[in-house]
């Protein structure tokens, strides 16, 4: 554990709770892509199946359970409890376009040809692109509410901080995980355009609007 990873994890947890709290307090899922949230739930379920046979630390176990339960709760709020407020008309990104390539990549790049390792690789690749339905939705509606922007900023920062963590671990422990690093870089690049808009608009008190 180093400071970069800790900050990355804090940012990740913060993102998850910002989203849950926003939906709960406004009693609305407007502007949130249910499809992205389903993809994140698949990511956590596929990656954290090792909960049952591999113990890293209490910290890891608690975080894994937290991400699985929070993402399931988010999907439940969007598709069941506040279904009437969910903006399904604008949430039209075809998720098979990210599910199928992630699965294919997992069969090509993995650390061993076992079910759990394939699931782990699949989850790493899928996580990199799971935000696409949400970014697509923001582009389609042309704007995002400020709290949604804060959510996206925290979620994007998490993987960017992990990149610093990987650089640090490479020099201090010789640790190098090519699959996570490559996917993590792609994941962070996908947020760059949003980061720019966030800094130039949201942080200056304006609403995030995308030019057509």
């Amino acid at each position: 554990m180093n400071l970069f990873r800790l900050m990355g994890d804090v940012s990740h947890v913060l993102a998850v709770f910002i989203l849950l709290a926003k939906i709960w307090r406004t009693r609305s899922a407007a502007g949130i892509s249910g499809r992205s949230q389903i993809l994140f739930t698949i990511v956590y379920l596929a990656r954290y199946m090792d909960l049952f046979f591999s113990f890293i630390s209490l910290y890891n176990t608690v975080m894994k359970l937290l991400f699985i339960s929070a993402s399931c709760a988010t999907v439940y709020l969007i598709y069941f409890k506040f279904r009437a407020t969910y903006d399904g008309n604008h949430d039209t990104f075809r998720i098979e376009f990210v599910l199928v390539p992630s699965l294919l990549l997992a069969f090509i790049f993995h650390y061993s040809m076992s079910f759990f390792e394939l699931a782990w690789s699949f989850s790493i690749f899928l996580e990199a692109v799971a935000i696409l339905p949400q970014l697509f939705m923001v582009t389609k509606t042309g704007e995002a509410e400020n709290i949604t922007s804060h959510y996206l900023f925290a979620l994007g920062s998490y993987r960017a901080l992990y990149i610093l963590n990987w650089i640090y671990r490479y020099y201090t422990e010789g640790h190098f995980d090519p699959i996570a690093v490559c996917a993590g870089i792609v994941q962070t690049i996908l947020y760059c355009d949003f980061f720019y808009l966030y800094v130039t608009k949201v942080l200056q008190g304006r609403k995030l609007q995308v030019l057509p």
């Binding site: 990656r47 061993s112 992990y162 995980d177």
Partner: peptide, 10 residues
Amino acid sequence: HYVRAAHDEL
């Protein structure tokens, strides 16, 4: 360290 035995990150 190149190929990991356990995934210790989240």
